[in-house]
Design a protein around this nucleic acid. Structure first.
Length: 429
RNA sequence: GGGGAGAUACCAAAGUGGCCAACUGGGCCUGACUGUAAAUCAGGUGGCUUUACGCCUUCGUAGGUUCGAAUCCUGCUCUCCCCA
């Protein structure tokens, strides 16, 4: 049984569309339980949905019986990885990195089994060995084995030859190469995984180990996930979709998956869900026959919101969505109970309005911009009003409409709306 | 060290004395169609207001010339290219 699962890791990645590049001999190498790592540089205060792809590599690696190391690049984040970036990036200060790595560490812990099992996951930080390393040692031990022509041949470097690349970022690949070598020496780690943009850094490590007389190391990458139109995955209107509930609310997170196009959803199901192949294929078939039911979108929304946040948050988000998008008629809003609104309040952005202000009556612009901050400028509000883009309680309004206590739902709430999908709850106190 | 080119809104890129809040494309927002999809079409995309061919802020930065500057001049900062 164990043996069978071990052999399936690469096949698993293949049919899920998670395999881009793989170094020679990996197939054979993975016939036994191995230790592999994947790094996350704490360059932001949270991971985002794009980071879920590499996380899934580690998850599958562990499920196949191997031992995963999640490496936080606390040291490398101070240097900056040029891979996939068109410009030199400003240095992050130490406090920021410090803060980021704590947050990211907590997020990573949710996805794997960190128990004492033989293949229990391990969390490490490369500051442990890089920050105490002496420059001269590094140049003699690592630098000496790396030729300029080899380093310059990396795609990440070549792409930056015209737009500028500092020595600092140029040297990044050596640090990552050393990480791999170090982990092979101290943790018996022989496999490194990453996104396709990491291939150059990974091979640098394999090469370094070879030069230093270390073990034969192996690398594997997943394709970079893009949207059907070639755009970056994981960006919504507001920018990145974060895993941190304070940056992207569970409701928004849920909505991100619900709003995937049919095409994206099908691909994402294989990549992000842990369902076995047969079940996925069944869902795909239903999806093809009745795309309008959006079975996959809903499954992903529920599944991922649960895994990233909690089952309770997922349920809440689903319930809120059902209310807001269910049939969406003004009359049905009036059927809702105070409890429903209180739950919606937990999930939607909301603002407080004093009853006396409302009693005096407000026009829509005052309400949406000045009193609640739902919209950021009056011009925006005016523009939206001109195209029927603002609704109060599901009813489109105009600039002249006055909003008063008679609009209140359950005598306490107003549901503002910008376009079809952007909701905002006003609570009167 | 020498020579050249450049810095325009979220990005790319026009504009080189008034017709410029600034062409165009992408992105983004809204509307129509729909399934909270895709594609398509339409409108919008600095802010404020008495919505007005009105006002304020914006074309790297600091000054200057001019009735008037993103456009001309000077200093500064940064970027790229070529030669040494």
């Amino acid at each position: 049984m164990q043996q069978k699962r071990l052999m399936n890791f690469l096949d698993e990645l293949r049919w899920r569309g998670l395999l881009a590049d793989i170094s020679a001999g990996m197939e054979e190498h993975l016939r036994q339980p191995r230790c592999g790592y994947l790094g996350f540089d704490p360059t932001a205060a949270s991971l985002h949905v794009g980071n879920l792809v590499p996380i899934m590599l580690l998850v599958h690696f562990q499920r196949a019986g191997h031992k995963p190391i999640a490496l936080i690049g606390g040291a490398t984040a101070l240097i900056g990885d040029p891979s996939g970036k068109s410009d030199e990036r400003p240095l992050l200060d130490r406090e920021t990195v410090e803060h980021n790595q704590k947050a990211i560490e907590a997020q990573l812990r949710r996805f794997m089994d960190f128990s004492n099992a033989p293949n229990g996951a391990v969390l490490l930080n490369n500051q442990a060995w890089l920050s105490s390393m002496k420059l001269l040692d590094f140049l003699r031990d690592v630098g000496k084995h790396s030729t300029i022509s080899y380093m310059m041949s990396k795609e990440s470097v070549r792409a930056r030859m015209d737009s500028g690349l500092s020595f600092t970022e140029f040297s990044y690949q050596l640090l990552q190469a050393y990480d791999f070598y170090y982990l092979s020496q101290h943790y018996g780690c022989t496999v490194q995984m990453g996104g396709a943009d990491q291939w150059g850094n990974i091979t640098a490590g394999i090469e370094l180990s070879r030069k230093l007389g270390g073990p034969h190391l192996y690398g594997l990458t997943s394709p970079l996930l893009t949207r059907p139109d070639g755009k970056k995955f994981g960006k919504s209107e507001e920018g990145n979709v974060w895993l941190d509930a304070r940056l992207t609310s569970p409701y928004r997170f849920y909505q991100f998956w619900i709003n995937l196009s049919d095409e994206e959803a099908a691909r994402c199901l294989r990549i992000f869900s842990l369902l076995p192949r047969e079940e996925i294929e069944m869902l795909e078939q239903q999806h093809r026959l009745q795309p309008e039911r959006r079975i996959i979108q809903e499954f992903l929304a529920k599944d991922l919101t649960t895994r990233v946040h909690s089952a309770q948050e997922a349920k809440r988000a689903a319930h809120t969505a059902a209310i807001l998008f269910g049939h969406g008629l003004a009359d049905e809003l009036r059927q809702l109970k105070a409890d429903d609104f209180e739950m919606i309040r937990e999930t939607l952005p909301h603002g407080i309005l004093s009853r006396t202000t409302l009693e005096r009556g407000l026009d829509v612009i005052k309400l949406a911009v000045d009193e609640t901050g739902f919209l950021s400028s009056r011009s925006e509000a005016r523009r939206l009003l001109q195209s029927q883009g603002i609704s109060v309680n599901k009813t489109p309004v105009t600039a002249n409409d006055m909003i008063g206590v008679n609009h209140l739902l359950c005598d306490r709430y107003l549901l503002l709306q910008k376009g079809k999908k952007n909701y905002f709850l006003v609570v009167v106190e």
